[in-house]
Design a binder for these strands. Structure first.
Lengths: 163, 163
DNA sequence: CAAAATTAATTTCGATACAAACTATTTGTA
DNA sequence: TACAAATAGTTTGTATCGAAATTAATTTTG
C-alpha cells in the first residue's frame, strides 16, 4: 500500500491548496459582485434570481431555490429585497395556496436587459484568458468534484480522522 | 476570427456551469462545516483561524486575515468569538501599540489536537475518490483561475458588456 | 372523515463577509 | 517639531447563508 499511502498524503497537500484557491475565487467573485452592485443596484444573488426567473417565466420559491442551490430561507430574503424594488411580484398559487409564484415585473424585465450575465463577468473574463481546453477541463473536474462532495456528506464526517 | 468567436461562446456556456459547480462545492463545504460545528463547537473559519495561529505561533490580526484571504473586519468577529471561548488571547504589541498580537491558549492548543483538518474533510473525502492526476489538474487549474481573477478585477467590469 | 404526516414558505437567530466610517498610533514630511 | 499621511484594528450597517422553529395548507392514513 506504499503507493496509496503516498497518494493520500499528496492529496492532503492538494486539498489545502484547492481550499485556498476556492476562497480566492469566491472572494474575487464577491469583489466583482459589489462593483456590479454599484452600477445596477443589484447584488450577485439578486441578479441571479432575476435571471432564473426570466428564463423560466415564473417559478415557485422552492423551485427557484432548487435552481440556485440555496436554502428557501435564504431565497425568501433575496426575493423580499427584489419585491421591495418592484422587480418581481409574489402571487399565491390558487391550486395550492401554500405555494408562492414569483414573476418578473416589466421593470424587472427591463433591468435585466441592461444587466450583466449573472455568471459573473469576473469569471467570464478569467475564462476568456485561458485555453478552451483548460476551461473544459476545469468545468469537467469541478462538476465531478461537486457531485462527489454532495454524495459524500455523511461519509466525510468520519473520514477526516484518518486523513 | 471564426474560431475565436466560437471559442468565446463556448467559454460563455462553460462559465455558467463552472459557476454552478462552484456554488455546489461551497454549499457542500458549508454542510460539512456545520456538521463539524456540532461535534466541536467550532465553525470552519474559527477552526481555520486557530489552525493558522498554531502554525505560525502568533500573528497580528492583519497577518491572520491576510493568510485567510479575509477582510480584517471579518476576522475581528471570528477572533471575538474564539476569545470569548478562551481559545486565544489578544495582546497589544509594545513595539507598535496599534497592533494586536494573537496567540493560542493552552485550551486552544488542546482543542486543535482533537479537531479535524480545516481544509474540510468533505473536500479531502472527495479528492480521495478522484485520481491523483485529476486532483493535481484541479489544483493547478483552480490556482490559475484564482490568480487571473484577482488580476482582472478592473478589466472585468468592462468585459461583461461584450460577452 | 378526522388525526397525523408532509410540504411550502416564513421567521428567528447566529455566523460569515465586506465596505465605509471611525479611533488610535505610527511614520513621513515640510 | 508640528502636521499630514498612512496603518492597525474596531464599529456600524447591510447582504448572504442555513438550521431550527413556526404557520398554513395539503396529503396520507387509520
Amino acid at each position: 500500500m506504499q503507493i496509496n499511502e503516498t497518494q493520500s498524503q499528496e492529496k492532503h497537500r492538494h486539498a489545502e491548496e484547492v481550499m485556498q484557491s476556492l476562497r480566492r475565487v469566491v472572494k474575487a467573485l464577491h469583489e466583482y459582485s459589489t462593483s456590479v452592485e454599484k452600477q445596477f443596484g443589484l447584488t450577485g444573488p439578486q441578479l441571479w434570481a432575476l435571471w432564473e426567473l426570466n428564463r423560466a417565466g415564473h417559478l415557485s420559491l422552492k423551485a427557484l431555490s432548487a435552481r440556485m442551490h440555496l436554502d428557501p430561507s435564504t431565497v425568501t430574503g433575496v426575493v423580499d429585497r427584489l419585491q421591495k424594488r418592484r422587480l418581481l411580484v409574489r402571487a399565491t398559487d390558487p391550486k395550492d395556496r401554500r405555494r408562492v409564484v414569483l414573476s418578473l415585473t416589466a421593470e424587472g424585465i427591463h433591468l435585466l436587459k441592461e444587466a450583466p450575465h449573472p455568471a459573473q463577468g469576473q469569471l467570464l473574463y478569467a475564462l476568456h484568458g485561458m485555453d478552451l481546453e483548460e476551461v473544459e477541463q476545469l468545468n469537467q473536474t469541478l462538476k465531478h468534484l461537486a457531485s462527489v462532495m454532495e454524495v459524500g456528506s455523511a461519509e466525510a464526517r468520519f473520514f477526516f480522522a484518518e486523513g
